[in-house]
């Protein structure tokens, strides 16, 4: 696994890294030095999310110790916003003449996948899903099918960026809180909207566990625009009594009722929300899964990231229920178990 996020997740020990917070309603990634990962000649044209995505993918491959490249499957809700914005503007500024092709090429949603394949000389299966809160999750489903079909491993991930301009655009349709909100106090500020975020997260998935495995995915369900009852039934059918719940709760009063359904279905089970760490974005679920994987393997919770959590957290946990939704439309539940 590997993650570039607004927290110190790329290098070092996450169990001691201090929590990064903001009151700007926008959590931006901590960017690493890309040079050890990407040759200078390739780096010069790449925009931010391409660098973030490619570097996370490469670090994930390093982390897995796997040297033969396999299928690459990713999800992204928005792709490279910087390049899309730039190309739209250059079309206007230069009146459709003398346009550099680079922003157009890089605005293509599968450009990060192409770069990973190119750098890894990987000619296997390659696919990119672009469906809001189901982008990463469809990549995950695709990868699990590939493993079923006989692939020994997959590189599966997600990447997303938020630009100032896109933050403003989404503020016009109520995506973000109107008042500046301290990210540490996200869950006590109930009002419409949440805080924005971004990040890249990659996983190596295999069909057979090893001593290096972080976690096993033992349950997975996606639900599109379910009613409250349908969600409740699905959650209850999905699992009984996990040791811990990781939830996508984000302080948005408009869609809080789905998380209340979760509370009702699993009363008394400790919950850790993660959006104060990474912000809300289409593929934030991948960050939540990464966090769960870290915790299951280390059998430890990065306490410094959850100062508000007064609940009694278990010392050992073997199973985690992950539940997240994106603006009430795409709902995802995953069951993770210790290997």
């Amino acid at each position: 696994m590997a993650a570039i996020s607004p927290q110190s997740t790329f290098e070092g020990d996450i169990f001691s890294a201090p929590m990064v917070h903001t009151d700007s309603n926008l959590l931006s990634c901590i960017e690493p030095d890309y040079k050890p990962f990407i040759p200078g000649n390739s780096l010069r044209r790449m925009t931010r999310v391409l660098k973030i995505g490619l570097t996370t993918a490469l670090k994930c491959i390093q982390d897995s110790g796997i040297t033969t490249p396999g299928p690459i499957v990713t999800g992204t809700g928005k792709g490279s916003l910087q390049d899309t914005e730039k190309f739209i503007k250059e079309i206007a500024e230069y009146k459709e003449t003398a346009l550099n092709p680079t922003p157009f090429i890089q605005s293509t949603y599968n450009s990060v996948n192409g770069l990973i394949a190119l750098q890894q000389k990987c000619t296997a299966y390659n696919n990119t899903f672009v469906h809001r809160g189901f982008s990463f999750e469809n990549a995950l489903l695709d990868s699990m099918m590939l493993l079923q079909e006989g692939a020994s491993h997959t590189l599966t991930g997600a990447f997303e960026e938020i630009t100032k301009e896109h933050f403003y655009i989404k503020s016009r349709i109520g995506f973000w809180k109107e008042q500046p909100t301290d990210s540490r106090a996200l869950y006590t500020h109930f009002s419409p909207g949440t805080i924005a975020g971004e990040g890249a997260t990659f996983f190596t998935l295999t069909g057979t566990p090893s001593s290096d495995s972080y976690a096993a995915i033992t349950g997975f369900k996606m639900l599109y625009k379910p009613t409250a009852e349908k969600l409740s039934v699905a959650l209850k059918d999905f699992t009984t009594a996990p040791d811990l719940i990781i939830s996508g709760r984000n302080g948005d009063s408009t869609y809080e009722h789905y998380y209340e359904t979760l509370d009702q279905c699993f009363q008394g089970i400790p919950q850790l929300p993660f959006k104060h760490l990474c912000g809300e974005y289409d593929t934030a679920g991948a960050f939540g899964l990464w966090l769960a994987g870290q915790m299951l393997k280390a059998q430890q919770i990065p306490q410094q990231w959850f100062p508000f959590s007064t609940e009694h957290l278990p010392a050992n946990f073997n199973s985690i229920l992950f539940y997240n939704h994106f603006y009430g439309e795409q709902h995802v539940m995953l069951k993770l178990e210790r290997v």
Binding site: G79, T108, Y109, T128, V130, H131
Partner: peptide, 8 residues
């Protein structure tokens, strides 16, 4: 199930 794919 719904999904959207974008590979150019």
């Amino acid at each position: 199930h719904i999904a959207t794919i974008s590979t150019a």
